[in-house]
Structure formats: structure tokens, C-alpha cells
Amino acid sequence: MSVPPPPARPPDLRLVAVDMDGTFLRTGSTYDRGRFAPLRRRMREAGVRFVVASGNQEAQLLGFFPAAEGPAPDGVVSDNGAIVLADGVRLLETHVPMDALARVLAVLDGDAGLTFIASGPDGAYLRESETPEMRELLTFYHPRYQYVARTADINGHRVSKIALVDEHGFTQAFLDRLSEALDGAMVPVVSGHDSVDLIVPGQHKASGLGVLLDHWGLVPGQVAAFGDSGNDAEMLARAGYGIAMANASAAARDAADFMAPANDDDGVLQVLEGWFPAD
């Protein structure tokens, strides 16, 4: 079944939530800043909040919106819903229980060659043994980090998410095996072809967005959400207007009501320009 394009701007729209990689951002992690700035002003004038919702670290997400270019997002849902920021104040900090974390790290440490970074409310933790290429990649998405000598040294820290990366991608067989080994301590979700996030059970972008809605007195029917990956599916399904990108995965498309142009065609900006036209 084909997914229709987004409708005209919903009259009850009060919040726009966007995933970043593969959705708001083009390939190469850029967006048209000059094009977005006036859109952001018009959204604020219309009383519509702007929220970014991502598996990435809060500091990385805020770095895309420097103060010199305009106001920060009204809300940030980071680490796949485990950390939530509203108007510059953290409303939620969630981390996996320490005994569960120890079990997860033991599983990961037993898989030779697996590359990962653990992230939480206090920053990220990266093994010194990772290759320079992987260090550069992982710290781009997690700019607040510290090195640890061994996997076991991550124990005792507050961890909300563990990002696994493999340039060749992850097979379903691997995900099934990993999920069985974790036994519910953390939940694997696909965040891109070459990456999988392990998240706190029950915490995802939709739950993080729900914290913001409660804080601002809004309801899901007043939300438009954009996404492209499996870790966006809950958010797309819960929003009143769930919008998948043309480059979205099957899981995101199945959860969405509408489809926008691809991220490399600035699909989010195209939709927003239709909803918030210049006078």
C-alpha cells in the first residue's frame, strides 16, 4: 500500500518532532541552515514547538543549532528517549540498572571485534582499543566522552544507550542472537544500516516525546513527527501525523501515516515550507 504525502498544515498542530540522521540531516550530517532559520521563526510565531528526537547524545544534537543562528530546539529527546530536555532543563535521566549493565557488557565483551560506545546522562565511554577510524566516527555522535581501558571499566557508570557499529551492517541472525543473549537487560533497535542501539527497556523516542507533551500540556494529536528508521517507529505511530521519509526503512514506513521527500532532498524542510509559508 502506498503512503500518501503529508496533508496541508493541520489546524491543531503544536509540535514538530524530527529525527536527525537520515531525516532532518542530509547524507554527510548537514542541513540548509539559511533555509531553516526563517522557517523556525515562522513556526515560533505560529505557536509550534520544534523538537529533535534521536539516538545520539544531547550535546551532539544541540551542536547543530548554535545560538548565533537562532534559538535552540524547544525540546531534545536523546539516547533514544532515555534523556529528555525541555527549554534547556533536563526533565528525564534514565539509565539501565547496574546489574543489567554488567550482564550486557559481558555479552558485548565476549563478541570479538564488536565496536561500540556506551552513553548516558554523564557522558559517553569508549574503549581505548577501538581503531582511530571508529574513534572518530563514534565521538562525532558522542562529543562528551572519556576513554576506558577495558569494557569492564564501564561498569558503575550510568548508561542509557550502547551504540554498536559495523560498516558491513548487522544481519537479522546477529540481532536475534544478541537479543536472546541480552535476555531483556537492554533492547536492540536498528538505527541505520550499519548501526544498532541497545536501549533501556520501555524507553524510546515516543516515551521521551510523551514526557515533553505532559510537560507542555499537549496531546499526540497535536504532533507531527518525521523519521526514517526502526528506532523512529514508535514515535511515528504515536504522533497524530507520523511522516516517514522517502528513504525510510520498511519499519518506519509501516508506522507512518504519510511520506515526505527523502532527506537528501530536504524533505522535512519542503513539508515545513508548505505548512509555514513566507508572507
Results as ranks from 00 to 15, higher is better:
86 A>S: 15
128 E>N: 01
94 T>I: 05
252 A>M: 04
35 R>T: 06
177 R>H: 13
216 W>H: 11
132 P>Q: 12
36 F>L: 12
82 A>Q: 06
35 R>Q: 07
103 R>T: 10
58 E>R: 12
121 P>M: 07
240 G>I: 02
199 I>Y: 00
40 R>C: 08
178 L>K: 11
153 D>V: 09
194 D>I: 14
30 T>W: 05
202 G>D: 13
49 R>W: 04
24 F>S: 08
70 G>H: 01
261 P>C: 06
272 L>K: 09
7 P>C: 05
67 A>E: 15
239 A>R: 12
178 L>D: 01
216 W>F: 13
177 R>P: 01
162 I>Q: 04
192 G>S: 15
250 A>Q: 14
191 S>Y: 06
213 L>V: 13
168 H>N: 15
9 R>I: 03
98 M>E: 15
35 R>M: 01
45 E>N: 02
260 A>L: 02
109 D>C: 12
42 R>T: 00
163 A>P: 06
128 E>I: 08
134 M>W: 04
61 L>F: 04
123 G>A: 04
228 D>W: 04
193 H>Y: 15
26 R>F: 00
65 F>D: 04
71 P>D: 14
138 L>M: 14
148 V>K: 00
191 S>P: 13
279 D>N: 13
113 G>L: 05
241 Y>T: 02
2 S>H: 13
6 P>A: 07
104 V>F: 00
9 R>A: 10
105 L>A: 09
33 R>E: 02
56 N>P: 00
251 A>V: 14
31 Y>F: 15
243 I>F: 07
169 G>V: 01
87 D>F: 08
228 D>E: 06
148 V>H: 00
54 S>Y: 08
225 A>F: 07
45 E>I: 01
124 A>N: 13
178 L>G: 07
230 G>S: 09
78 S>Q: 05
79 D>V: 03
152 A>W: 09
258 F>H: 15
154 I>V: 15
71 P>H: 04
78 S>L: 06
198 L>T: 05
115 T>K: 14
67 A>I: 03
69 E>G: 01
224 A>K: 11
153 D>R: 05
129 S>H: 09
119 S>E: 09
240 G>Y: 03
262 A>Q: 14
99 D>I: 05
272 L>R: 08
248 A>R: 04
134 M>Y: 08
263 N>V: 11
41 R>T: 14
16 V>P: 01
40 R>Y: 05
159 V>I: 15
255 A>S: 09
155 N>F: 00
221 G>N: 04
173 A>K: 12
213 L>T: 11
164 L>N: 09
77 V>K: 10
184 G>T: 06
24 F>V: 02
33 R>C: 00
100 A>T: 05
199 I>S: 08
50 F>C: 03
231 N>L: 13
122 D>C: 06
155 N>P: 01
77 V>A: 03
34 G>N: 12
39 L>I: 15
149 A>F: 03
131 T>G: 08
69 E>S: 04
134 M>F: 05
13 L>E: 04
153 D>T: 05
143 P>V: 14
256 A>Y: 02
